[in-house]
Design a protein around this nucleic acid. Structure first.
Lengths: 202, 202
DNA sequence: CCATATGCCTAACAAATGTTAGACAAAAAT
DNA sequence: ATTTTTGTCTAACATTTGTTAGGCATATGG
């Protein structure tokens, strides 16, 4: 079943993700996807149940990766700052690891319907909660400013998520370099302003 | 022509923007828009030329507002920090002033075609350049860290743009409050780390 | 060597899409 | 009072959409 070579189904999903990223889910037709694979649209249905199944597979597989990352970080005992840096690193790695799928995860999930949509939103909230926990830890540890929690989380998530809008694989920055710079940046906004050394770089 | 009461055309565009924000441009049909106005789809065409014209009107009117804001800021002589705070304030005001249209401006512009798409991208680049100028000023003035310019701009824009994802009119925060908090936050990431006073709040 | 599974094809479908044409009523302008 | 404008309607259109049915070929496994 699962093998080293990419299954046809996975190929379809990846190609679909690439198109969804560029044109959006609704603007991408099954014939567009098929054309990219040089087959007919009807042939896709021997591998997938429906167009929406493709979207579900993308959204939930990414949700899974993002969640796994932050859960691992929260399981380990570390300082809040260390945790936040690790969480950001994990996030950027997942995101840059599959940019197309990540973009779909971030923007196209609203095309999900019914139970799947509810389920997805729950996972998304769970992920936000993971960051919230870390920042709350930081406030408790007196490391971070006592900023409004929700606001801080949103600021952090906005910084990391916007990467999907501008990151290019050949842009010269590795995932970890980006993660470090973002960490420095948001840390500057969160950390207690006690610094004396002008060359301090966090 | 232009009057105090909202023209039918403007009503259509506003209703369309609201739907585009929720479901996306492609997923919103002319019949959806018509239904919201309690008329038939065909009736829309006495006011607008095409579905895409609606999208164009939304995208370019918002681009105009955002650009006007930052140009005003850059015309005035002020410190870079002051300018950045003003630019952020202007941005948040425009954004919260019409959340639906702003969201369309941020996410649905890719459904534009041909010349209009190119034109729009130019305006968008021009806006980014406005922020870039401010931050460059700050670096020259030795107020901001010598961060990579492009990276800093993207960080700032990510912070302000993500607001569209979570801001609710009844959420208890005014536009200016949000602007101030974001300013504090990004300033923490940009400003030279020379602070000694632990109660310093920028 | 045969049976089965895999992967693709053509053809077709019902539904939904953006849009046009032409008619009719009410309001505004002359 | 009559013309013009404005705003809507019904009806229809060509196209595109996601999807299904059924068939044919190649590879796989007994």
């Amino acid at each position: 079943m699962a093998s080293l070579v990419v299954s046809r189904k996975d190929q379809i999903i990846q190609v679909a993700a690439d198109l969804f990223k560029i044109r959006g889910y609704e603007a991408t037709s099954m014939r567009d996807i098929a054309q990219q694979l040089e087959i007919e649209a009807a042939s896709l249905y021997h591998h997938i149940k429906s167009k929406e199944e493709i979207l579900e597979k993308i959204c939930f597989s990414m949700a899974d990766q993002f969640l796994t990352g932050i859960e691992e970080v929260n399981d380990i005992y570390f300082s809040a700052e260390e945790k936040l840096r690790m969480a950001i690193k994990s996030h950027v790695r997942v995101l840059t690891g599959n940019l197309s799928k990540s973009t779909v995860f971030l923007h196209e999930w609203r095309s999900l319907n019914g139970e799947k949509l509810i389920e997805f939103k729950e996972l998304r909230d769970k992920y936000e909660k993971g960051f919230k926990t870390i920042i709350q830890d930081g406030i408790n540890e007196d490391i971070f400013d006592d900023v409004d929690l929700k606001f801080a989380v949103l600021s952090v998530l906005s910084s990391v998520n916007w990467i999907a809008e501008w990151y290019r694989v050949d842009g010269g920055m590795t995932a970890d370099e980006i993660a470090n710079r973002i960490s420095d940046f948001v840390m500057g906004g969160l950390r207690k302003k006690l610094v004396t050394d002008p060359h301090f770089k966090g």
